[in-house]
Amino acid sequence: MADQLIEKIPDFDKKESTVNVAEEGFIDWTSLTKPPTAKNMREALIILAVAVAIVGGSEVLVRLFNVPNYILPAPSKIFTALVESFDVIGPHILITLQELAIGYSIGAVIGIVLAAVITQIPFIEKIITPYIIILVTTPMLALVPLLVLKLGFGLEPRIVAVALAVGPMVMINSATGFRRTDMAKIALARSYGATTLQLFIKIRFPLALPMIIVGLMVGGIFGLLTAVGAEMVGGGGGLGSRLVFYSSLARMEPFFATIVIIATIGISMYVIFFLIGKKWASWEA
């Protein structure tokens, strides 16, 4: 019998789908994806009161101790500068968003597609993964001077830097997702005569989706970081270049106003992906 068709004993492990995703990821992102939130009105009020106290308290302290503007402007002055300089900063917001949107889209699409493909071929995955980890752990900002040299002072070097920062981050998380193979669910689909494409669309992709969303969220944060950093290094327009400009003139009010804008962009991205995750990946919780 041994010379005939022989296979490995199949492993019909039923438990795999219940594994907490975040635990298998490159890093545990649960602090990002599942933040603790207020459970009732009272808690919400206390959280809000603390926020008000921090902003109001810093206002009082700055005024009380006469902290010079170049160290820390009072929150009210930052707010005033935000309103007054908005006309000047506005176009730079658009530049940064443009770099981010284009670079992010390129990086995210390549990351997801690459993850979906290489996880189907374990050996190729073993070859490629070390390089992806190098790309994830090396700050792509380090490449910006080189990219500027090659691509000039326009948007291109920054878009490439953003894509390079986003792609590997999305890819490594998506790959973790695509690697989750639940044999029982695949057998279920196959028992109905599912094709390879159907298996991918109906089983593998939904199974991977929570990790893809985590990758997209973290990738977005890395992308913003890289976009602003590249603008600081590479000159030209954008919020990063505004930071360099205002700090060189010691105009700290618009400097901090710019930081507030950057933070708002970051938080908005986070909230968007948090809501997407809530809608499409909540089955995992």
Partner: peptide, 30 residues
């Protein structure tokens, strides 16, 4: 796999990202 055969697995093996009716419609989709 044969269209005249239906399988029931050790655990219910429902797809957790689909609600009950979408789970029941799963074989029809395939």
């Amino acid at each position: 796999p044969h269209p005249e055969i239906g399988m029931i697995f050790q655990e219910a093996n429902l797809l957790p990202w689909r609600n009950l009716i979408k789970n029941i419609e799963f074989p029809f989709e395939i």
